[in-house]
Design a protein around this nucleic acid. Sequence first.
DNA 1: GCGTCGATGGCA
DNA 2: GCCATCGACGCG
Length: 196
Amino acid sequence: MPRKKLRHAFFERPAIDLARDLLGTILVRRVRGKEYRARIVETEAYVGAHDLACHASKGRTARTEVMFGPAGRAYVYLIYGMYDMLNIVASHREDPQAVLIRGAEPLDRWQADLTGPGKLTRALRITRAQNGLDLTGDRLFLLADSAYRPQLVETRRIGIDYAKEWKDALLRFVDANSGLFPQPRGVKTHPSRNAL
DNA sequence: GCGTCGATGGCA
DNA sequence: GCCATCGACGCG
């Protein structure tokens, strides 16, 4: 059975491991009577309260509360006043780690641009209304695909230059088998984002 | 192809 | 005031 639903135990690991292993898995979104599937091709790990790029490094607040809860739930927050970011809570209670889902590729002949965390949530209609949602449910969940082998590339995380000694940590993971990254020079890629 | 900038709102 | 972003615009 190449495609089994990911259960809670899958998410109960350090974010760095979870972020790697989420590459190649299939994100399933059921909304408005339809089901959309997309292969995850880009993730970032936010590894705990000591990670200055992790929201939880500023303390336990109403916004970050979900990250302090059990693994396998959605942490969705608003950034720049207009984009919702989808994260998956990792590790265990009281250890605020999460994986940001940054990019995916549509499956099953469905067309959409999911190359960026803001574009992905917009296309899949994921908002803060899904904050705290259990990702082993039936509206938003993940499937393993044991037949698929991503080619792992590690880079620095995007947009966290304020994070001092954490800004250069290799905690972004990209599937180089996806058409997304890396690309031959001059071909469509993430704008200003392929700094290894 | 690449740098710069404005939009937009919640949060500390 | 600052953002785990995006897309439009201008350059030459």
